[in-house]
Design a protein around this nucleic acid. Structure first.
Lengths: 246, 246
DNA sequence: TCCTATTTTTAACTACACTCAAATAAACCA
DNA sequence: TGGTTTATTTGAGTGTAGTTAAAAATAGGA
């Protein structure tokens, strides 16, 4: 199904004329695999809505190591938060990892339109708030969880999203590894290890979850809220009866 | 100097009557050292402005490890982004590490006021955008920089902010260590090591920078923009002539 | 289909930062 | 002031994930 402008989180509160205005501001962009949309450090004048394909957002360290900060899927917008900075520059490089179609929106013009719609401002703020939350979770993962926890967490998320025991990893393992801040070799070893313990079965990029409970346990995620379990002294989550959750 | 409401980033665009309204919504809060303002996972109904003291924002892993996500200083607001979530709950625990005074603002009421001021919405979005950027930098630090780089980065930031070769670490070393996701022992060892190389001199919590260039080099920060240097294939930062920077 | 290029896996080894333990230093309070 | 607690430092040993290298599997093109 094609992505509809009005179904996009950021645009749902717009009136028809506003939506039409937004449509006229947008420019269609096509990217081939491995093509770069923008590079880290360059001035940011547009933000984007994915229509199809897949894009990775990444940073490169001085010694040449790449860290994938995020993977963008159809229906998602990205780089919109930069609109509100003085002299915005992209903090990541965006590279298509599949042939992709997207819409680009001019920051200035969109910002102008936002001024006419407090509702859209609130949408935007909800969106940014969500992103902040997920980045905090990410920092939590990086600092308080080990590599196995993170891999388990990824697989558990896949299982929840696909609502199936068997699913396909939709990005190359190397990219997923970098997303988790783990080397490809380590990622491979961990998958193997989880196989040995009969928690999952791996066949190429197809994964079957054999023991979902154990996987969730390893991922330190809360079953009900789908969020990270964290230890609060004496605290119990009012929703789940589990230890209090984020 | 006491913190003035109208000098606070979030409130500077408010009109006098709006500011007065905000003032009436605020409630003064006093915290003693080690007192907890809110706990991770509890429902969030207010956000805060620091007037004096110091507060740490932290998370606890299942096995009891603490990670300090941030340290809040007078003049800063925190937890305001939660206002825009459906059923907001604090993603961190806030604990005073010095006796502190703050103002609490009711989310509902403040949100209502925001609807009357697009300018303030834009302030808020600028604020959140900034926070997003700093969290991305944080993830960069955690994944692409080693412990020494991070400690050097912290010291370099102190030096820039204080505009002095000699400065005082304003939080216990253990807290700073956790802020950097490093164990206190490792933090201590790295300071010692930097002393040995005559890059800094350490005397209790007083640090003197002896070799600022070397410190900056170790921190991988860009001298001009004050932001992280990252490697972009073939790219040079137009501002600094350095490798392109974030 | 073969051949090449890329990705993934396996294996042996290494190192950075952690753990554990104890000594020292600093802060706190009676 | 002395005595207790807490924070910091130092030392020795360990483990997790990274590095290096090479084999195996997979994908892609002629």
């Amino acid at each position: 199904m094609p992505v509809e402008l009005r179904d996009t989180y950021l645009f749902t509160t717009l009136t028809d004329p506003q939506l039409e205005q937004v449509r006229t501001l947008s420019r269609k962009i096509n990217l081939g695999e491995d093509e770069v949309l923008f590079e880290c450090g360059t001035p940011a004048s547009r933000f984007f809505l994915m229509l199809s394909g897949q894009i990775k957002l990444s940073r490169l360290s001085m010694d040449g190591n790449e860290k994938v900060i995020g993977i963008v899927h159809p229906g998602n917008t990205f780089a919109e938060a930069l609109m509100f900075q003085e002299q915005p520059s992209y903090p990541v490089t965006a590279t298509a990892i599949k042939d992709s179609e997207l819409l680009g929106f001019d920051n200035q013009q969109f910002s102008q339109m936002l001024r006419g719609s407090v509702d859209s401002c609130f949408r935007m703020m909800g969106d940014m708030s969500q992103r902040l939350r997920s980045l905090i979770k990410e920092i939590d993962d990086l600092t308080l969880q080990n590599a196995t926890n993170r891999v388990a967490g990824l697989l558990y998320q896949y299982q929840l999203m696909r609502e199936a025991e068997t699913f396909t990893l939709d990005a190359p393992k190397g990219v997923l590894a970098s997303r988790l801040s783990v080397k490809p070799e380590t990622f491979s070893r961990i998958l193997h290890h989880l196989s040995d313990k009969e928690i999952i079965r791996v066949k190429g990029n197809k994964i079957t979850v054999l023991n979902s409970d154990e996987l969730r346990e390893l991922s330190h995620e809360d079953p009900f809220t789908g969020t990270k379990k964290i230890n609060i002294p004496g605290g119990v989550c009012p929703l789940t009866g589990n230890k209090r959750c984020l």
